[in-house]
Amino acid sequence: EVYKVKIKIERVLPNGEKVEEEITIEVEGMSEEELLALARELAAEPGVRIKEIEIEKLPP
Rank of each mutant, 00 (worst) to 15 (best):
E1Y: 09
E1C: 05
E1P: 15
E1V: 13
E1L: 10
E1N: 08
V2M: 15
V2A: 10
V2R: 14
V2Y: 13
V2D: 09
V2E: 09
V2Q: 08
V2I: 12
V2F: 11
Y3W: 15
Y3P: 11
Y3N: 09
Y3C: 05
Y3V: 15
Y3G: 10
Y3R: 14
Y3K: 15
K4A: 07
K4Q: 07
K4N: 07
K4W: 07
K4F: 07
V5Q: 00
V5A: 11
V5I: 07
V5Y: 03
V5M: 14
K6Q: 04
K6R: 09
K6G: 01
K6S: 09
K6Y: 07
K6C: 03
I7Q: 00
I7G: 00
I7Y: 02
I7K: 00
I7R: 00
K8F: 09
K8C: 04
K8H: 09
K8S: 09
K8E: 01
I9T: 03
I9V: 11
I9N: 00
I9C: 01
I9Y: 10
I9P: 00
I9Q: 01
I9W: 08
I9M: 07
I9S: 01
E10N: 02
E10V: 13
E10P: 00
E10D: 04
E10G: 02
R11F: 04
R11Y: 04
R11L: 03
R11C: 02
R11I: 04
R11D: 00
V12P: 02
V12W: 09
V12I: 08
V12C: 04
V12R: 08
L13F: 13
L13K: 08
L13C: 06
L13T: 08
L13W: 05
L13S: 10
L13D: 03
L13R: 11
P14N: 08
P14D: 11
P14M: 07
P14W: 04
N15V: 01
N15I: 01
N15K: 01
N15R: 02
N15F: 02
N15M: 03
N15C: 05
G16K: 02
G16H: 03
G16T: 01
G16Y: 02
G16C: 05
G16P: 00
G16R: 02
G16W: 02
E17D: 11
E17L: 09
E17P: 01
E17S: 14
E17I: 13
E17F: 06
E17Y: 08
K18N: 05
K18I: 15
K18H: 13
V19I: 12
V19A: 05
V19M: 10
V19D: 02
V19E: 04
V19Q: 10
V19F: 05
V19W: 08
V19C: 08
E20Q: 14
E20T: 10
E20C: 04
E20K: 05
E20V: 11
E20I: 12
E21V: 12
E21M: 14
E21S: 12
E21N: 07
E22H: 10
E22W: 08
E22S: 07
E22M: 10
E22I: 14
I23M: 15
I23Q: 02
I23V: 07
I23K: 02
I23S: 01
I23N: 01
T24H: 09
T24D: 06
T24G: 02
T24Q: 06
T24V: 14
T24M: 10
T24P: 01
I25W: 13
I25L: 08
I25M: 15
I25C: 03
E26A: 08
E26T: 10
E26F: 12
E26K: 08
E26N: 07
E26M: 11
E26I: 12
V27K: 06
V27L: 11
V27A: 10
V27D: 02
V27Q: 05
V27E: 02
V27M: 14
E28I: 09
E28L: 15
E28V: 06
E28C: 04
E28Y: 10
E28F: 05
G29C: 03
G29S: 12
G29W: 08
G29F: 07
M30I: 10
M30H: 10
M30A: 05
M30P: 04
M30C: 03
S31Y: 12
S31T: 08
S31L: 07
S31C: 04
S31H: 06
S31M: 08
S31E: 05
S31D: 07
S31F: 05
E32I: 14
E32R: 05
E32Y: 07
E32W: 08
E32F: 11
E32A: 12
E32M: 12
E33I: 05
E33K: 06
E33L: 15
E34S: 08
E34D: 08
E34M: 09
E34H: 07
E34W: 15
L35A: 10
L35W: 08
L35R: 02
L35T: 12
L35D: 00
L35I: 13
L35V: 07
L35K: 01
L35G: 13
L36P: 03
L36N: 10
L36G: 05
L36C: 05
L36F: 04
A37T: 13
A37W: 05
A37D: 11
A37Y: 09
A37L: 11
A37N: 12
A37I: 13
L38Y: 12
L38G: 02
L38D: 00
L38F: 12
L38Q: 03
L38E: 01
L38N: 03
A39G: 05
A39E: 03
A39R: 03
A39V: 15
A39K: 04
A39W: 06
A39S: 06
A39T: 06
A39N: 01
R40Q: 11
R40V: 12
R40Y: 14
R40E: 06
R40K: 05
E41H: 13
E41S: 12
E41M: 09
E41Y: 10
E41R: 13
E41C: 09
E41W: 08
E41K: 12
E41Q: 14
E41F: 14
L42F: 04
L42C: 05
L42W: 07
L42Y: 14
L42K: 04
L42S: 05
L42V: 05
L42N: 02
A43F: 09
A43P: 02
A43H: 08
A43E: 07
A43L: 07
A43G: 12
A44W: 14
A44Q: 06
A44T: 10
A44C: 05
A44M: 11
A44G: 14
A44R: 14
E45Y: 14
E45K: 15
E45R: 14
E45D: 09
E45P: 08
E45A: 13
E45H: 12
E45T: 15
P46Q: 13
P46I: 13
P46L: 14
P46C: 05
P46E: 05
G47C: 04
G47M: 02
G47L: 02
G47F: 01
G47K: 03
G47I: 02
G47Q: 03
G47T: 07
G47S: 09
V48L: 13
V48A: 04
R49M: 07
R49C: 05
R49A: 10
I50D: 00
I50S: 00
I50W: 02
I50H: 00
I50C: 01
I50R: 00
I50Q: 00
K51D: 02
K51P: 00
K51Y: 06
K51R: 13
K51T: 13
E52P: 00
E52Y: 11
E52I: 09
E52C: 06
E52W: 15
E52K: 08
I53K: 00
I53H: 00
I53S: 00
I53F: 04
I53M: 07
I53R: 00
I53C: 02
E54W: 14
E54M: 15
E54V: 15
E54C: 07
E54S: 14
E54R: 15
I55R: 04
I55D: 00
I55S: 03
I55M: 06
I55H: 02
I55F: 09
I55A: 02
E56L: 09
E56Y: 03
E56P: 02
E56G: 11
E56W: 03
K57A: 08
K57V: 10
K57S: 07
K57W: 15
K57R: 05
K57G: 08
L58M: 12
L58W: 14
L58D: 03
L58N: 04
L58S: 10
L58T: 11
L58F: 10
P59D: 04
P59G: 13
P59F: 14
P59H: 14
P59V: 15
P59C: 08
P59W: 14
P59R: 04
P60Q: 11
P60W: 00
P60F: 00
P60S: 13
P60I: 06
P60L: 03
P60H: 09
P60T: 11
